[in-house]
Every structure is written in structure tokens, then in C-alpha cells.
Design a protein around this nucleic acid. Structure first.
Lengths: 240, 240
DNA sequence: CGAGCCGTTGAGGGGATTCAAGCTCAGTGG
DNA sequence: CCACTGAGCTTGAATCCCCTCAACGGCTCG
């Protein structure tokens, strides 16, 4: 586990940051240890249970968050009243960027799995941002990544017949999972909200893929996928 | 029209920029006239015909663009080989932001209508960006807007039955049109690529809406919508 | 043990696709 | 001048995919 205390003179959070597994890919990865030392007191670690709401759409953004472990989904409710999941974020992603612009959060952010986060106050980034062009560039990268993810969502998960969409969702989910550990398998209702289909359709397709050996459940909300079989299934699907 | 020459000492493009109708909402809107004077020689005006490709996905981004007039669509091709329109941009929008990150363009950008653009070299923004925190903030705003648009696309245009998606597309298109002028009406094949439906379905629904009086064609690729009737139709649709 | 949530499966109906034909219109060349 | 062509749009008919409605089983929890 992460050591909580090490050098007596340093703030515990500084050590946590230095040892952090995602630091290399996180926002402050560009900063050196000395800079980290200056900011550690402002960043707080945060744990959330699955299905907990990290922030609501419209809530005023006073902080952004780095995902150290787990999966977050972004939801909106449609004019019809039902919710639609519009994007996912995983380990290393920086979310809630709207906060930097003094804007309300654009989506509900909800934990898919148990979450480990770092909470970064808006003011902290503002302070560091002055003149710190490496940090600015890092921020823009995050924005572009999020945009890219969202557009890919349209092209991959909102296109084609139901079976194709489920297959591509499994591909994306398995990509968001570190090798070895089983993949997060959404509830049927959640698959429906991601792919715009009825829960019965989601259930039928997941069951079918289990029978085909593409998928096998390891728990109520987790599974392992046969990557090769999945790839074959997608190609077969696209050939039609 | 825009005056091309005014003060003898200034570069013609400077006058164009000062007089530009979208300057208030454009990237360099934050800059004053003096600053504009320094950069005008680097920005060039650009006109494109409908259906022309502004830049291709994967092309290396050496410039970004401000839309002065017209509509741009962003396309990707799916693994199945067919294309999918994932987002639209209109007047005042800044596009091709990836260029700032020395990244290849993420989508094909194609003109929906005749376009008037300003081409902004990447290097220019880089230079101005040093210390210029107002510009940086402006950039981040653009990024967040694009992300928001993309997520709204999922929630609005990729959700629900075909009729609902067509209605919401008309709503979005009419919102991107300045009042008075007729709205751009996509080809049926383009509607299909935006809403993931067959061209026959798109045709049937457009025809039906025309019969209902929501829509009336003013040309082969333009139409006017009855905003009130459209709103009523959407609400009726959502009530089901 | 009953209540409630979640997942599964079946039956039936409806909406969207597919296949097909015919239409208008612009451009081309006899 | 006008048939010829091809692209885009429309409409019909048949098919099929997916939704809806429904019933049922496993599971947790009060």
C-alpha cells in the first residue's frame, strides 16, 4: 500500500503524490517533486462507492478530479426524462474540467466501480497556471482527449445494430480495464442507457455472447472477455 | 460589405479583422486593436464551397480555423466502413483545436454550406499564448464548448425513435441558423449519417413533417421551420 | 418468508430496414 | 429540341430487428 508517513518534515499527502501510481499520466505529472511539495496540502484524496454521485450536472464546479482507480460515467437526462450515459472515464483521466472556467458541471458524474480520486481545487490550478505553460498544455491535452472520447462514443456506441453496439462496448470496457483483473460489467439497465436499447435487448445479447464464449461472468458485476473471440465477433458483425 | 482598405498604414487584413462580424465571439476577440495589428498578416481569409473538405482526419494540424459564416460537419468512418457525422460547428466556432497540440486532426471536417473561414496558423497561437492568460482561457472555453456539443449530440441525436431524432436535428439546425435566412437542410444521406438511419427512413420522416406543416422547403437544400410547431411536435413525441 | 431488485426468456406487435419501382431535375450529347 | 443518363428523393411492400408486455427464477434484505 501507499506509505502515509515517511519524512517527518513533509506533509503526508506529498508522499502519497510522489508514490502515486498514476502520477506519470496525471495532470501534475509535469511538475517536479519540489513543486508537488508546495501544492500537496491542497489536494485531497477521496474514495467513493459504486453508484455514488461525484458531482451533479449544474452543480457549481469548485474542483476537478483525477481518477486514480475505477471507472466514472457521465450522464445526462434527455428531454423525454430518461437518462443517457454519454461518456466514460477511467484511470488517469482528469474530469470536471468545466470547473476551471467557473462553469457548472456539464453532466452527472457517477461512480461505476469503487473509486479512488484526487480532488484538485479550482483555485490551485489557477495559481499554478500563471506562466506555467507546461501545465496549460497538459490541460488542453485532457480537453482534447475528452472530446475525442465523446466523438468516438457517437461513432462506436451509437451506430449500427444492437449486437454491434454491445460488442464495441465490451471492447471499450475491456480497454479501460488493466490486464489481469476482471472487467466491470454494467447492469442491464446501464447498458441500455449507454447504447440506447431496452434492458431486455441488453440481457438477450449479453446472454448470447456468454453462450458463444466471448464473455464469462466472474461475479454479479464483473466478467472476463476472450479478446480474440471478441475481435472475431466484431469483424464478423461488420462484414454483414 | 467589409471595407478592404481604410487607414493607409495598416495591413488590409487588420481592417477586415476589426470589422469582422464574429470578432466579439471569436478567439481573438479578447485582443485589442493594437494586438490585432500585430497578428493580422498571419491570418488569412478562406472561402470554401459546400461539400469541400476543410481538412482530413489524420492530416497533420498546422492551423486552426474560425468559422465566420456557414456550417461545418465532423465525420468519422466506422469500423464497418460507412461514415458517421459526429458533430456540427457554426458561426463563431473555433475548430481544429488539435493543431495546437501538434496532433493530427481527429475528424474529417467538411463544409455543409458555402464557408467563410479565418485560417490561424498554429505557431501564431503558440507565440501569443506565452503569458497571455486571457487567450488561454478563451481556448479552454472553446474546448469545453466542443465537448459539450459532442455530449449533447449523444443525448439528443443518438437517442430514441427515428422521428424524435429527426425533430431534434431540425431544432439544432434551426438554432445554428441566423433568423431570417432559410435553414440548411441536409441531403437524406447526410441525415442518415447524422442520425444513424436509412435514407428511406429519413425521407419518409422529412416528407411527413412537411405534410404536418413543421417544415417547408425553400430550395433543394434549404427550408424554413415553424419553430412553434416543431416545439409542439417534440413535446408530443416525448410524451409517448 | 414475502418484498423488491435484477436478470432471463417467451410471445406479439410495431417501427425501421431492405428491396424495388418510379419520380423530378440537371447535365450531356445526338 | 429531346432522348438519355445519373443523382437525389419519394413511396410501397415485405421482412426483420427490436421494443413492449409478461411471467418467472435467483438473490438480498427487512
Amino acid at each position: 500500500m501507499i506509505p502515509i508517513y515517511r519524512g517527518g518534515s513533509r506533509h503526508p499527502q506529498a508522499d502519497v503524490c510522489v508514490a502515486c501510481a498514476v502520477r506519470g499520466q496525471a495532470l501534475f505529472g509535469a511538475l517536479d517533486d519540489a513543486a508537488l511539495d508546495r501544492i500537496h496540502t491542497r489536494i485531497e484524496s477521496l474514495d467513493l462507492a459504486a453508484d455514488a454521485v461525484l458531482y451533479p450536472r449544474g452543480g457549481d464546479g469548485t474542483a476537478l478530479f483525477t481518477i486514480r482507480a475505477g471507472l466514472v460515467r457521465f450522464e445526462r437526462s434527455t428531454s423525454r426524462g430518461d437518462r443517457r450515459i454519454v461518456r466514460l472515464a477511467g484511470r488517469g483521466d482528469l474530469i470536471g474540467l468545466e470547473a476551471l472556467l467557473q462553469r457548472p458541471y456539464a453532466d452527472d458524474a457517477v461512480a461505476c466501480t469503487p473509486l479512488q480520486l484526487c480532488r484538485i481545487p479550482r483555485a490551485l490550478v489557477d495559481e499554478l497556471g500563471h506562466g506555467e505553460s507546461a501545465l496549460t498544455r497538459e490541460l488542453m491535452l485532457r480537453w482534447q482527449d475528452a472530446l475525442d472520447q465523446s466523438e468516438a462514443w457517437v461513432a462506436d456506441l451509437a451506430t449500427g445494430p444492437a449486437r454491434r453496439r454491445v460488442l464495441r462496448l465490451l471492447l471499450k470496457l475491456s480497454g479501460l480495464t488493466e490486464p489481469g483483473v476482471p472487467m466491470w460489467l454494467p447492469r442491464r439497465e446501464e447498458i441500455g442507457a449507454m447504447l440506447d436499447m431496452a434492458i431486455e435487448s441488453a440481457s438477450r445479447l449479453i446472454s448470447q455472447l456468454r453462450r458463444e464464449g466471448v464473455l464469462s461472468a466472474t461475479g454479479p458485476r464483473s466478467a472476463t472477455v476472450d479478446r480474440a473471440a471478441l475481435q472475431r465477433a466484431i469483424e464478423a458483425q461488420d462484414r454483414l
